[in-house]
């Protein structure tokens, strides 16, 4: 039923070339449906094992608030991976931005400067990644690995490895507060995911991201400035790491060089569970969001049942394998029908 696009690396319902977008509909194809099924299954498990405390408004609140920072990082990671790259540095950049925006000097300028600082540090680190990769011709894995190490190092240097408590009440009141009964942090997630979806699926920027990841050489021959686009994609991922730093500083009421530890791995896992190909060229925003929610739900369900962290990690690993195998099978089934 679907024609295999010559540029596409696989038949996933997400086209690589800009043309056949209309067929995609809401993007709720078989693969996304199966992911959604996993999500529903987890919710059922949570409800059955913990009937009193799981399906409550405040638990939903908690799950979404915990999912929010990792979700924002994962949106940036989705773009990077679709463009055929990888960003190992986002967790460290989150730590660096959270430290930089909460130093006593930054805090003395008030909440606005704190927020701007967080965003600028994230954007700056992301652009450095992008320039090294696009113009310095470094492999993304290596360039962002270097940033992974040095951003965390700089964060430790700036903070002297101390925890910097946020004392600005304006900042805390706004970001820890609610709007229309929904926590500010969840609003930020909603806005970022929606913006990410539009950017990916409805703009030239998104089409170029797919094209660059699918076939960079063909894209270059089509007259697109591939280098500049790649630099922008990493800059965008860095900017979102800055947003995450702000969210974490609000959630924990502190900036610390340990903030954002292992976020890159959680984000990559969520993106992969969501069906984005590590080889680039295809992927979906909705899948990434479900991937993030699946991870947060697993932790929540295990804590509800008072199971230790090590068991959670075993389950998370298993979920990655199952999700990817499941997608492989549905892809194959579709390819043959």
């Amino acid at each position: 039923m679907t024609q295999l696009d010559p540029v596409a690396k696989g038949d996933t319902g997400v086209p690589v070339s800009p043309a056949p977008r209309a067929r995609q509909g809401l993007g709720l194809d078989l693969r996304l449906a199966s992911l959604f099924g996993v999500l529903v299954l987890l919710i059922l498990i949570g409800w059955i094992t913990s009937p009193d405390n799981f399906l409550t408004g405040s638990n939903l609140d908690t799950i979404l608030r915990l999912a929010a920072p990792s979700g924002v990082v994962a949106v940036g990671m989705t773009f990077v991976i679709i463009s055929g790259g990888i960003d190992l540095s986002v967790g460290s950049v989150v730590g660096l931005a959270s430290v930089w925006m909460t130093t006593l000097a930054t805090q003395s300028y008030g909440p606005f400067v704190m927020v701007v600082t967080g965003l600028l540090v994230g954007l700056g680190a992301g652009l450095v990644n992008g320039l090294l990769i696009a113009y310095g011709r470094m492999v993304p894995f290596i360039a962002t690995l270097a940033m992974y190490i040095s951003a965390r190092g700089l964060a430790e240097y700036l903070s002297n490895k101390r925890t910097q408590v946020v004392s600005d009440q304006g900042f805390l009141t706004f970001f820890r507060g609610e709007f229309l009964g929904v926590p500010t942090l969840v609003w930020i997630l909603v806005v970022v995911v929606a913006a990410g979806w539009v950017l990916l699926n409805r703009t030239t920027f998104g089409r170029r991201t797919f094209a660059v990841g699918g076939n960079p050489e063909a894209t270059r021959l089509a007259g697109i400035n591939v280098k500049r686009h790649i630099a922008m994609v990493y800059g965008f991922a860095g900017l979102l790491a800055g947003v995450t730093a702000i969210m974490l500083a609000a959630r924990t009421t502190a900036g610390s060089s340990t903030n954002g530890m292992f976020y890159e791995l959680d984000a990559i896992a969520a993106v992969v569970i969501g069906g984005t190909a590590l080889t680039g060229g295809r992927g979906t925003m909705v899948g990434t969001l479900i991937g993030v929610l699946i991870f947060t739900l697993i932790t929540n369900i295990f804590v509800q049942n008072n199971l230790p962290t090590e068991v959670q990690n075993i389950a998370k690993g298993a979920i990655i394998v199952i999700a990817v195998l499941l997608q492989f099978r549905t892809n194959k089934a579709r390819a043959t029908t």
Partner: peptide, 12 residues
């Protein structure tokens, strides 16, 4: 310049 001014942790 803005960022560089924000790195200090010296108490006031």
């Amino acid at each position: 310049a803005l960022l560089a001014g924000c790195t200090s942790n010296e108490p006031p």
